[in-house]
Amino acid sequence: MLPVIALEGVEKIYRRGSEEIHALKDVNITFQEGEFISIVGQSGSGKTTLLNIMGCLDRPTRGTVKIDGIEVSTMNEKEISRIRREKIGFIFQQFYLIPGLTAAENVALPLKFSRKPIDKKYILSLLDTVGLDMRAKHTPDQLSGGEMQRVAIARAIANHPHVILADEPTGTLDTKNSMIIFELLKSLNSRGLTIILVTHNVAFAEKTGRVISISDGQMNSTRLDSKHITGSI
């Protein structure tokens, strides 16, 4: 079976003036469908860069990225937008809900950009998945941080993505809410969704199927190594 995501010889070099930052150095990795993987590493080690490249938000300087076996590095902006829309769900540390729009409207956004009809029942079922069907009409300012992140998760799965990329989704949440989010991700995974989670939380990482540790832009091991996990909650 084709891997959901496959990176081959991926390098990422950021240029800041004359300075070159090697954010990723020769990354080779594949993720199979249904996996729950955590990525750990110190701040600045390249986790977000890796996630952005896997999620087609950014292009590698060198190497190839394949999503569902399709090479994306050579695609144009429009095609890449379509891949993001159809195959990938993002969850960010900062939630990024749109203020002023209700939870339901925020969840419906990806459908809007896919030009899909917005079915109220379906939106409610998504909110039900994250346990917030009662808050459909609430705007972000009426929700707690944990609730906002759950709405963001509902938004991430709205378009039936093949893989969820979560970049420190519990980074700003307290222990209890972090647990809720993690459990939600686990239950989504148990339904067959591939999940890639960047986290500082050792306890969470230990509970995932595979742990990838990054330091200084290089993947060191695929086993859990607590030395690379810092700032855990």
Binding site: G55, L57, E77, K78, S81, R82, R84, R85, E86, G89, F90, F92, Q94, Y96, I98, L109, P110, F113, S114, R155, A156, N159
Partner: peptide, 16 residues
């Protein structure tokens, strides 16, 4: 800016 980035991430194209 960040919101626009998020909207791109959830699938909006440049023309969107």
């Amino acid at each position: 800016t960040k919101e626009i980035g998020m909207i791109r991430a959830i699938g909006a194209s440049r023309s969107d």
